[in-house]
Amino acid sequence: MHKGIYILAIATFVAGTVEFIITGLLAMIAGDLHVSVGIVGQLVSIFSLVFAIGAPVFIAITSKVERRKLLLIAMTVFFIGNVLSIVSPNFTILLIARIILAASCSVVIVVSITTAANIVSNEIRGRAIGVIFMGISSSLVFGVPLGTLIGEHYGWRMTFALVGVLSLLSMLGIIKFLPKVNPQPSIPLIKQIATLKNKRILSIQLISFLQLTGHFTIYTYLTPFLQSTMGLSTKMISISLLIFGVAGILGGWIGGWSTDRFGGPKTILILLGLLAISILLLPIATNSIISLMIILCLWGCFSWSLSPSIQDSLAKAAKDTADIQVGLNNSFSHIGIALGSSLGGILINEYTARTNAVVGGIIVILALVSAAYSFSLNSRTVAKTN
C-alpha cells in the first residue's frame, strides 16, 4: 500500500474529529461563552450544512488544481479555522470558525477519497479507499472521546489546539509522502442534481437523510442526555462515546457482510427497524449502566451499518451515475446531520433530553418508510420487465 494512503487517512481522521468533537464539549462551551446547550448544538448543524453545500461547489471550483497542492491549501485553511476556534471570545466568532473548518474539511475528505483511488493500482483501489474511511470512522471512536477528556482537564480550547497540531503534522506528511496527482474531469452540478428525477434514486438518498436526521437529533446531545438522566461524569461519558464508536466500526463490517449475504434491500429494512427500536429504548435504558451500555452498543452498531447497503443500492439503482450518487449521498447525509442537530437543539431547549430520543426514533421510522417505498418501486420495475 502506498505510504500516501496512510497520510490521507490521518488527514481525514483529523478532519473528522473536528466535525463531531462538539458533541462532547457542549456543556463546556455553553458555560464559557454564556449560551445555552441547544445554541452550541447548532455548531454541528452549521458545520454539516456548509459541508453538504460546499463539498460539490468547492470541488467544482477547484477542479483544475493539482490534488496535492489543493490538499495543502485546504489543510492550511483548516489550521486557521482551528486557531480561530482557540481564540474565539464569543459564540459568533466560534460560529465563523466552524464555517471555515467545514469548508476546508469538505475539500480534505472528498479529495482524500478521490486521490486515494488514483495513486494505487486497480487491484487494491477498494482497500485504499477503505483505509481512508477507517480514518473517518476512527475519528468518531478515538477523536471525540479523547477531545472530551482533554476539554474536561485542560479546557475545550485545548482540544482545538491538539487538532491544530495534528493538522500541521498531516501537512508535513502530505509534502513528504504524497505524489502530485492531476485533477480529474468534474461533473457539472446541474447534471448531478438532474439524476434525482428518478424516484427510486431519490427515495434511497432520502434514507440517508432521514436516518441521520433522526440519529443526530439525539446523538449531538448525548452528553447532556447522559448528564441529566444518569448524572454520569465526564470520564464515564467519554467511555460511553468510545463504546458507541467501537460498536460503529463493528457495525460497518456487519452491514457489508449482510449486504453481500442477504442483499441491500433486506439489510436496510431490518437494520433501520432495529435502529429505530434501539433509539426509542434509550430513555428506558437509563435505569442502569449495564442496560445503557447494551443499548449504546446496539445503537452505535446499527447506525453505522447502513452505509454499505445504501451505497450498494445506489450503485444498482443508478448504474450509469454511480459516482455522482456517492457524492450526492454525502450531501444528503450532511444535510440530515445539520437538520437533526438543529431540531435536537430546539427540543432540548423546550423539553427534556428524553424527548430527543423519541423524536429521533420516529424520524428513523420515516427512513424505513422511504426504504420500503424505494424497494417497492424496484419490485414494480422487475415485474414489468418480466
Rank of each mutant, 00 (worst) to 15 (best):
S342Q: 07
S342M: 15
S342R: 05
L343P: 05
L343S: 06
L343H: 11
L343Q: 08
G344I: 10
G344L: 03
G345N: 08
G345E: 08
G345V: 08
I346K: 02
L347I: 15
L347K: 09
I348D: 02
N349D: 13
N349H: 05
N349Y: 04
N349A: 15
E350A: 14
E350I: 14
Y351M: 15
T352D: 11
A353C: 00
R354V: 11
T355I: 12
A357S: 12
V359A: 05
V359K: 01
G360V: 03
G361F: 03
G361C: 09
G361H: 08
I362W: 01
I362F: 03
I363N: 05
I365P: 00
L366C: 07
L366T: 11
V369N: 04
V369W: 01
V369T: 13
S370I: 06
S370Y: 07
A371K: 08
A371W: 07
A371H: 04
A371Y: 08
A372W: 14
Y373G: 07
Y373Q: 09
Y373R: 06
S374C: 03
S374H: 01
F375N: 01
F375P: 00
S376F: 01
S376M: 09
L377H: 13
L377C: 02
L377F: 05
N378S: 14
S379W: 02
R380F: 07
V382E: 14
A383P: 00
A383T: 06
K384Y: 12
